[in-house]
Amino acid sequence: MSLLAVEGLCVSRGGLPVLEGLSFAVAPGEALVLRGPNGIGKTTLLRTLAGLQPPLAGAISMPPEAMAYAAHADGLKSTLSVAENLGFWASVYATHDIEPALERMNLVALRDRAAMSLSAGQKRRLGLARLLVTGRPVWVLDEPTVSLDVASVALFADAVRGHLATGGAALIATHIDLGLAEARVLDLGPFKAKPPEEGGFKGHFDEAFG
């Protein structure tokens, strides 16, 4: 039984397909790392999975309210403190306990600092701590390790491992090696959408002039 399954998915950016024929499944306790060059459509794919944009074709199956999404931007409010930022998301997801997340991401000492006074790496750690307070089993992460140092990457990898150990799953788009030996890797290169001349998806206006 998989937590997240994708069948024949085709995702589009700006009305044009970028990836097509994508099928994969992620089981509880499993991490899937997505790789591919810039512009192949990793972010588009993750946004589609997060429900922010509709797929062009195909099906995504996931239990309701199972997914926590982390984008490039952390969504932090610079005038709120670390604890307030995290506490807000904890009450949105109705989990209310931020202490374990602070500890896990090594943010306890920073808890009363305003988010604007944090370094880029500290902000990123706070953004990732948000995942821990959501209490959701499927993590969909877009470049989670940007601006993290080596120690913090290890910290993050530990957090992912802990998440997997409790039956969670993770889908991670990244360029660097996270040190997650158990993670499967999926190269998106072969799924690049074909132009219509080669039988790919036709836009609504392709046929307008025969």
């Binding site: 700006g14 009305g15 044009l16 970028v18 512009g39 132009p195 836009g203 206006f205 392709d206 307008a208 002039f209």
Partner: peptide, 17 residues
């Protein structure tokens, strides 16, 4: 408008290829 859209679609495809 349809012609303009067609043109835009072609340009976009050019950029992405």
């Amino acid at each position: 408008e349809i012609r303009a859209r067609r043109l835009k679609a072609l340009e976009q495809r050019e950029r992405m290829a």
